[in-house]
Nucleic acid binder design. Structure first.
Lengths: 174, 174
DNA sequence: ACTGAATAACAATTCAAA
DNA sequence: TTTGAATTGTTATTCAGT
């Protein structure tokens, strides 16, 4: 793997975990991890990776991966990194029929979602990621609890289905 | 409605319909429609509206509404504009169980999706918008055809359910 | 509260180099 | 092909005025 690729993977990790709002700051963080590059290079990386600077709820902004739809793309060699990020950023799961709604840390939904895609579970029809939420569309309602258990295990915990059989569905809050 | 609000609504329309990649250009388009404002003001509008500059597939970028999840936010007075945009930008509908997947013109998904939110249909649990696709999560599968008919009527056409009772569902491909 | 003019902050590009 | 230094382009902010 080329130096540039390693740097770009590292950029992904950094922006998924920390709020980065300028390329200068990102440059500094990269330096801490041993990547020496200038703002010009980072600018090119960001363009290539198609990252976007997202305005935040309460002022400010941060770089994030763009939200996107995916049909099951899989990228092989980054999977371990992605799984780590998933474990760190996934906060909660909820089921509504054949959907699983996953809440994540702000800005991390796209990356966590990719981690799920990468696992290539056949029950998963597709995914759709926003900023701090992503949705997994599952073939049918019955597969959803199975997938949710696998997700919980990715997070390092026990499956919760041992006790509770069905998660409460998402309420249409109003 | 204040002048600022009208300007911001107009900004929404402009960016949903045309590729706008700088605030200068947006300023010019606004002027064509009778809104005189400077880049500084547009910058503040964009921040307030939380628009983002999205990198495009093939180089360049454009301002778009951020992809987001929504639980049923409704904004009352912009609804007529939104409906018009929906009518212009929605391309196709497909059902998969309790989901409706709507394809739109590039960059218009978020706005079209907002139009749907604004209608405040109780069967709709939530929505999730990407760039040219949005998903409507419906309470249950049976409500989906009803919603789809209403969407078709928003587009100015006849409901198709008069003849066909159920739309064919989206196949979980392969 | 909202705005424009000027300016500062930031990001993208150009150019030269390796 | 990738990079850094310098430059240019673009956006956000400050400050003053309404």
């Amino acid at each position: 793997m080329t130096k540039k690729n390693m740097r770009q993977n590292t950029i992904m990790e950094i922006i998924a975990g920390e709020l980065i709002d300028t390329q200068e700051l990102l440059t500094a963080r990269l330096l801490e991890r041993g990547f020496r590059a200038t703002q010009a290079t980072i600018s090119r990386d960001i363009k290539e990776m198609r990252l976007i600077k997202t305005p935040l709820e309460f002022g400010g902004s941060r770089y994030t991966a763009p939200s996107s739809t995916s049909g099951s793309m899989s990228s092989a060699n980054v999977s371990e990194r992605l799984r780590r990020i998933f474990a760190q950023s996934a906060l909660s799961f909820a089921q509504a029929q054949n959907l699983i709604v996953v809440k994540t840390m702000p800005g991390a939904a796209q990356t966590a979602c990719e981690a799920v895609d990468t696992m290539g579970m056949p029950e998963i029809v597709g995914t759709l990621a926003g900023d701090n939420t992503f949705v997994i569309i599952v073939r049918d309602s019955d597969s959803a609890p199975v997938i949710m258990d696998r997700l919980r295990m990715m997070r390092g915990g026990e499956p919760e289905n041992a006790r509770r059989r069905h998660e409460p569905a998402v309420e249409p809050d109003e």
